[in-house]
Amino acid sequence: MQRRAGGKGGLIMTIVYSDREDEAAAQVPMRRIKFTVNGEKKIAEVEPRLLLAHLIRQGLRLTGTHTGCDTTNCGACTVLVDGQAVKSCTMLAVQVDGHEIQTVEGLASASELHPLQEGFREEHGLQCGFCTPGMMLAAKALLDRNPDPTEEEVRWALSGNLCRCTGYQNIVKSVLWAAAKLRAQAPAD
């Protein structure tokens, strides 16, 4: 499914689908796309119909991005494209050609958790954890834009992400915790 190409270690990916013989499998169109994921430049060969969520999970093997509902409702597959939150089950991989993707794997550094991840730990923002990556990225998009959100603004920003465990209270607290920490870390004006 994945192989290293020659040269400087560029990665070429192909996603394999089952041939159910219900479509014109003989004429599979392919596109070569270049994009950045969590700061790393990538090249992939994809079918135009490939969803971004599947490129991330199967192609890049970044399985932190979850697919929940497959119908643009639950937000578990939320990633950032050029800093904007998107439900990656509803964008085609070819559409990120030339763009920058950030997934939950890009939040932490080798030694430190991102304040959002710390916040979810400190405030018990997750139970089963399925919705958590989407919640964190939707929250990151909010905090990048608005470093000091009200509780209401956090709830509003997360209204496209569903959680079936926590009742949202602790998720909201986690995001507010992270916002406070990020503000404390930010250089004073």
């Binding site: 119909r49 599947h54 697919t67």
Partner: peptide, 10 residues
């Protein structure tokens, strides 16, 4: 896993 049918892209 829901996947669209084959499609060309421009």
């Amino acid at each position: 896993m829901q996947v669209p049918a084959q499609v060309e892209y421009e």
